[in-house]
């Protein structure tokens, strides 16, 4: 029995690449990879199952299915040849936690100062969650909830904190 109508569970590990550097070079690289470039900061744009997230003035993440890590390496990791960009596969650096259910905002709001009502359907934003850096995204429809992505080393702490916030 939990305090809120929410369920907390790990998310499957996708392939993730990170890009940092010159915005023009980054956009060009994403377009060349066949990805849709997000139109505004703190948002995501999908191309099939691949998504590009714009998280900061010079920071992007690309999510793809786990099986596509080689594709990601070849297309986004190819930034290795682009001197103005730093790129790396960071699939192992992130761990995802799903907070599902009508009470998901009440649970996540115990850890983050972010206004969760303002998190748009395509929103993707870094924030503070229980004192650690976290990427928050709405879970894809039709589910109700929030996907939490944190540094792998902190995943258990965040999951336990979310469980406690849920009153488990």
């Amino acid at each position: 029995m939990t305090r809120y109508d929410a369920a907390i569970a790990p998310l499957p590990a996708p392939a993730i690449a990170e890009l940092r550097g010159d915005p023009g070079a980054a956009r060009a690289l994403l377009v060349a990879a066949g990805l849709t470039v997000p139109s505004r900061p703190n948002s995501a744009a999908s191309t099939g199952e691949r998504e590009a997230l714009w998280l900061g003035p010079k920071r992007w993440l690309v999510f793809a299915p786990a099986a596509e890590e080689r594709w990601l390496e070849a297309h986004v990791g190819s930034a290795a040849r682009e001197p103005l960009l730093a790129a790396a596969i960071v699939s192992d650096m992130f761990a995802g936690i799903a907070v599902r259910g009508a009470g998901s905002r009440d649970v996540v709001a115990q850890g983050t100062p972010l206004d969760l009502d303002a998190l748009a359907a395509d929103g993707a934003t870094m924030t503070d969650l229980f004192g650690v850096a976290a990427l928050l995204r709405p879970l894809p429809a039709p589910g109700i909830g929030i996907a939490v992505w944190v540094d792998r080393s902190l995943a258990r702490f965040v999951a336990e904190s979310l469980e406690a916030a849920n009153g488990a």
Binding site: R20, L85, A86, A87, A88, I89, V90, D92, S153
Partner: peptide
């Protein structure tokens, strides 16, 4: 400056 820094501590 044309240089970027990407933390990768937990990747490895």
């Amino acid at each position: 400056w044309r240089v970027s820094v990407l933390p990768v501590t937990s990747q490895w």
